[in-house]
Structures are given as structure tokens and as C-alpha cells.
Simulated assay, not measured.
Amino acid sequence: MSARQAVAEFEALADDAWLLRLGERIDDALNARVHALAARIRAQAPDWLRDLVPAYASLAVFFDPLSVDAQTVRAWLTRQCDQSADDGAATPARTIEIPVAYGGEFGPDLDAAAAELGLSPTQLIQRHGDGDYRVAMIGFAPGFPYLSGLDPALTLPRLATPRTHVAAGSVAIGGAQTGIYPRPGPGGWRLLGRTPLRLFDAARATPSLLQPGDRVRLRAIGADEFQALSEDASE
């Protein structure tokens, strides 16, 4: 990949933040470049760096305006963008296994979604669970992972009328993405199952279980294992 491809457009978010736009689309290769750039910046960790927030095609960089001026930060970031981005595919990533109980009370939309896709519920579970997922970004709610890597054949539109209540841990499809609701709340994605894991806990040293760039493997479980893991998570 050439340096020209790695150049970002800069947008001032505030007096203490730059938004680096690497593109305008949802694309796995583009998202990998975002995470590679974030990793390169994080590895150098300049004293003025306060936070990095990656999205699908952009990276927000927050800095301390009392210790450095915005143009100095922009010049430094430009040099990082101009470096070769060949390390994008080699960026280290954790692999996190997420157990999921599919269907029934755990996934009330499973049967209808399978019928809409021309699959049996068992086939949908198998194909959904076989996905090679990556956390493209965290958003919508604290700890909510947007997972890229969904089989394109499993793309489903959001519900015409969103639910007013979605249970914490619900695993869902929204368009061409999979997501996991970290806490109860409204939502319009198709609910296929639920994980007993606690995706966000403000009391933990690292509140969000999943981080941008992580790889995710889904593992189908039954109701008994869901119950046992739920009890473990509550301890």
C-alpha cells in the first residue's frame, strides 16, 4: 500500500481534537488501515496524546491543548499518515470468544430472520457463528461493538419499528453488521441470540470487554450453559 493511500483528510473537531478521515465507506481493508494508524500513534504515545477513538473510516485524536498547539499536532499526525501502511494487515489483535445462546427467549427474531433469508434457523445459527468478526468500532452505547465480517448473504434490514427494550447481551444483525447490546435499552436490530458475558462494566479497570481492532469468535451454547455463565458473570 502506498503512502498516498494512507494520507488522511483533517477536520478540527474542537480545540483539542482532530478527526482524520481515511475514507468514506464501510470496508474491512479501510478499517484495518484506521486501526493500524491508531496502533502506530499509540505505540509512540506522545505526552500530549489524551485519547484515540477509531471508527469505520476515521480516527479521532484528542490532545492536551495546554501542552501543544493544534498545528503542531496536525504536522506530527501527517507524518504518521505519510508512513507506509503495509503494517495494516499485521496489526496485533486479540481474539475474544463470545458464547451465544440463539433463538427462543434469547433471540426472538431468529425464526423470522431465517425465513426471510431462505434458511432454516439451524442454518442461520451455523452461518452467523462461522463469521470471522472484527470490532470495527465502539459506539451507540458504552461498550457496543460494531462487528465487521458478517456473511453478506446474511444482511438484514433493521426493524421498521424499533423495540423499546432490548435485553443486555443481545446479539443482533443490523444491515451488513453484527452488534451486541451491552446493556438494556431500545434498539431496532434483528435479535438472533444473547450472550451471558458482561460487555461493559464501569467498575472494571477496562470497562469495555471488547476493544476496537479485536477479533471476535461466536460460539453457540445452550440454555444451561447460558445460565451457568450468567451466574459466573454476576459474581
Rank of each mutant, 00 (worst) to 15 (best):
D109W: 04
F106C: 06
D82M: 04
I98H: 07
P108Y: 08
S84W: 06
A85R: 08
T91R: 01
T78E: 15
Y102G: 11
R94W: 05
F106I: 05
R74M: 08
A89R: 05
A89V: 12
A89C: 04
D87N: 13
I98G: 06
A93P: 07
P99C: 04
G103T: 12
A93W: 12
P99H: 05
A101Q: 14
L110I: 06
A93Y: 10
D82T: 03
W76D: 14
T78P: 00
A101S: 09
L110G: 07
Q80W: 06
S84D: 15
D87H: 02
A101K: 06
A101E: 12
L77V: 13
R94V: 00
L110K: 11
R94I: 01
F106M: 08
Q83G: 07
A89N: 10
G88A: 15
A75V: 11
D82E: 14
F106A: 14
L77C: 13
P99T: 03
L77A: 12
R74G: 04
I96A: 00
G103P: 04
L77K: 13
R79P: 03
R94H: 09
A101H: 11
V100I: 10
V100G: 05
D109V: 00
Q80P: 03
G88D: 14
Q83F: 00
Q80V: 06
A90D: 15
W76Y: 14
C81L: 05
I96W: 00
I98C: 05
L110N: 10
F106H: 15
A90E: 13
V100C: 06
P99M: 04
A101N: 07
R94S: 05
L77E: 02
S84Q: 11
Q83E: 10
P99K: 04
E105V: 12
G88F: 10
P92E: 13
S84P: 06
A93M: 09
L77H: 13
G104I: 09
R79V: 12
W76C: 13
A89K: 02
F106K: 07
E105G: 06
A85T: 04
A75W: 01
Y102C: 02
A101D: 07
G104C: 08
C81F: 03
Q83Y: 03
A93F: 07
G104T: 12
G103Q: 13
P108M: 03
C81K: 08
Q80R: 12
F106Q: 11
D82P: 00
D109G: 00
G104H: 09
P92N: 10
A89T: 14
Q80K: 12
E97W: 00
R94K: 04
T78L: 11
A101P: 01
L77Y: 06
A75I: 07
A90M: 07
P92L: 02
S84R: 10
E105R: 09
P108I: 03
L110A: 09
D87G: 02
Y102T: 11
E105T: 13
L110D: 11
A93R: 15
D82A: 13
T95F: 02
D82S: 09
I96S: 01
Y102A: 08
D82Y: 02
P108E: 15
G88Q: 14
W76P: 08
I98Y: 05
T78K: 14
I96N: 00
A90V: 06
L77W: 07
C81P: 08
T78Y: 01
D109M: 01
C81Y: 03
A85Y: 02
G107K: 08
A75H: 12
